[in-house]
Design a protein around this nucleic acid. Structure first.
Length: 261
DNA sequence: ATGGTAGAAAATCTA
């Protein structure tokens, strides 16, 4: 089965891209971030016609996340449990697979703007709360995938300019320590289980010909729990839709899981 | 240190 993540930067603006991409890439699960719409505006019927049901946690103007799935989803949880958050950033659901139930946790992590800012402090508190939440979820659901727009480059090789951007947003030691702490729970960055091209990125700034110059960052990730590790067949970034007209600034990342033993 | 682009929304805010 295939599971993907894609920050679409407004589902209103990108619905046709999502539908076109799903026809070319009929993944079992697609996690979306930055819907920038309320639940009542979500195109449930159109996606149902495409074969997908959806769990949605929307918000006006900013944020908003959804899980699209061919198979039924259950036990939907919105936001980080025990963390008061006005922003719609996390949605979790369980999906039945040939290898048993799979917990999917889709996150639009806080951007943080600039180290030292209020938004950065919010990012750190949010990451603390997420860590505790994921620890609890792992105890309850051995087969777990945490994916989405993490807004963190895990390592220098995940940035087009690690020297020039040292300790700036997405590159700080604190952010990377939080990412490592998630790995410390037993999660694995599936993309790095495989040899990958140099300068593999998932986001490119719209400005200054960022994509054309491959001035990007790898900030969209798919982490898998220990029991899933042996099932991981591939993890790739699909740059194709980034070349389409009026693209999202992010590319989809796709994980392939084999059947269980 | 500023600006460059995109989206939502209605002047800026977020990224």
């Amino acid at each position: 089965m295939k599971i993907a993540t894609w920050n679409v930067n407004s589902l209103t603006a990108r619905l046709q891209h999502v539908l076109d991409w799903l026809i070319a890439n009929p993944v079992d699960v697609l996690c979306l971030q930055e819907l920038k719409m309320t639940d009542d505006k979500f195109p449930l019927e159109v996606l149902k016609s495409a074969g997908y049901e959806a769990a949605v946690f929307g918000q006006k103007t900013y944020n908003g996340v959804a899980i699209l799935s061919l198979a039924p989803v259950r036990d939907v949880v919105k936001n980080i449990e025990n963390f008061a958050d006005e922003q719609s950033r996390v949605i979790a659901a369980t999906i039945e697979t040939p290898s048993g139930p799979l917990r999917v946790i889709n996150g639009y992590f806080v951007n943080g703007q600039e180290p030292g800012s209020e938004k950065f402090a919010y990012k750190m508190k949010w990451l603390d709360a997420l860590h505790a939440y994921i620890a609890r979820e792992l105890a309850a659901h051995p087969n777990l995938v945490l994916l989405g727009d993490f807004n963190v480059t895990p390592e220098d090789r995940d940035s087009f300019d690690p020297v020039g951007l040292k300790e700036t947003i997405h590159h700080t030691t604190e952010e990377r320590d939080h990412f490592k702490a998630l790995l410390g729970l037993g999660l694995t960055d599936s993309f790095r289980m495989f040899e990958q091209p140099e300068k593999s990125f998932s986001w490119w700034d719209y400005r200054m010909l960022g994509y054309q110059k491959n001035r990007g960052l790898r900030i969209d990730h798919i982490l898998v729990s220990e029991p899933l590790r042996p099932l991981v067949k591939s993890c790739v970034i699909d740059r194709v839709p980034r070349k389409w007209e009026k693209p999202s600034d992010h590319a989809p990342v796709v994980l392939e899981l084999g059947a269980g033993a």
